[in-house]
Computed example of a mutant assay.
Amino acid sequence: MTAPVEEVAAANLAGRLHPSQRRIVLNFTFWLCLVVGGIAAVVCVVLPTATNVFEGPNRAQSIGTYPFIVVLALVCLGLCVRRYRDLHKPLTVVTGWAHDFGRSPITDAYPIGLRFEKGTTHTMQRCEVRVGGKTYNTDLETWQKIKPERNNTLCLYPKTKLVINVIPS
């Protein structure tokens, strides 16, 4: 069930994330990092305690690999914690004139800069939004909601570079 657009916009303009928007923050990347980090954490605990992998002919390889597994677990779980903490932080709301730069590089001459680069056989398409000196890569659906050459209101998380909602003004 989708929430009414007005209800979502009102929550975002108040600086809050609407419950229907949690999937934007806790997306596929979050769940993939959680699974990989969880498996790596389990391996870090189970490997030295339940097996004798550090005592045998491959002892040096096992000891050399172990720090990489620990770092992988810490990085993945750290990214998950960072994303999860964003659920409870206030949104940053930016209102300003949006300018479409076309294929040329985006500058900070306008409060909101837009750039779309069509993909070729060797590259993927890129939908870029530049706000407050930071460039956000968005999906095509979110990028198309921003109306060029007029005022728009963007609700975003600057630290994780997520555009949560676009409200044309």
Score class of each variant (00 low, 15 high):
Val166Pro: 05
Leu74Glu: 01
Ala14Ser: 15
Gln144Asn: 13
Asn27Ile: 10
Asn58Leu: 06
Asn151Pro: 09
Asp86Ser: 15
Gly64Pro: 04
Val35Cys: 09
Asp100Cys: 01
Gln125Lys: 04
Ile39Asn: 01
Arg130Tyr: 00
Ala40Trp: 04
Gln125Ile: 08
Leu17Lys: 10
Glu6Met: 08
Val163Phe: 06
Gly132Ser: 09
Val36Leu: 13
Thr142Ile: 14
Thr153Glu: 11
Lys159Phe: 10
Asp86Thr: 14
Tyr157Phe: 13
Ile164Thr: 04
Gln144His: 08
Phe68Glu: 00
Ile63Gly: 05
Tyr66Trp: 15
Gln61Cys: 09
Cys80Ile: 04
Pro57Tyr: 03
His88Met: 06
Leu162Pro: 04
Leu77Lys: 08
Lys89Phe: 00
Glu55Ser: 02
Gly38Leu: 05
Gly37Phe: 05
Asn27Asp: 15
Glu117Phe: 07
Thr2Val: 11
Met1Asn: 12
Val81Asp: 02
Val70Thr: 07
Phe30Val: 00
Pro148Ile: 11
Gln21Asp: 15
Ser20Met: 08
Val36Trp: 13
Phe54Ser: 03
Cys155Ser: 01
Gln125Ala: 15
Glu117Gln: 15
Tyr136His: 03
Trp97Leu: 12
Val70Phe: 09
Val166His: 06
Ala98Val: 09
Leu154Val: 14
Arg22Leu: 10
Ala11Asn: 09
Ile39Glu: 06
Thr138Trp: 02
Thr142Tyr: 04
Pro19Val: 13
Val94Thr: 10
Leu140Phe: 03
Arg115Cys: 10
Ile146His: 03
His18Pro: 11
Leu77Ser: 08
Thr51Lys: 10
Asn137Ile: 13
Leu72Thr: 14
Lys134Glu: 07
Tyr157Ala: 09
Arg82Ile: 01
Phe30Gln: 08
Val46Trp: 13
Thr65Tyr: 05
Leu140Ser: 07
Ala60Asp: 08
Thr49Pro: 01
Val131Asp: 09
Arg126Ser: 11
Gly113Phe: 02
Ile164Asp: 05
Val131Met: 01
Arg22Ser: 04
Thr138Ile: 05
Ala10Pro: 00
Ile39Gln: 05
Thr65Cys: 13
Leu72Phe: 08
Leu34Thr: 01
Val75Ile: 15
Val25Tyr: 02
His122Ile: 11
Gly96Arg: 00
Val42Glu: 07
Val93Met: 12
Val81Phe: 10
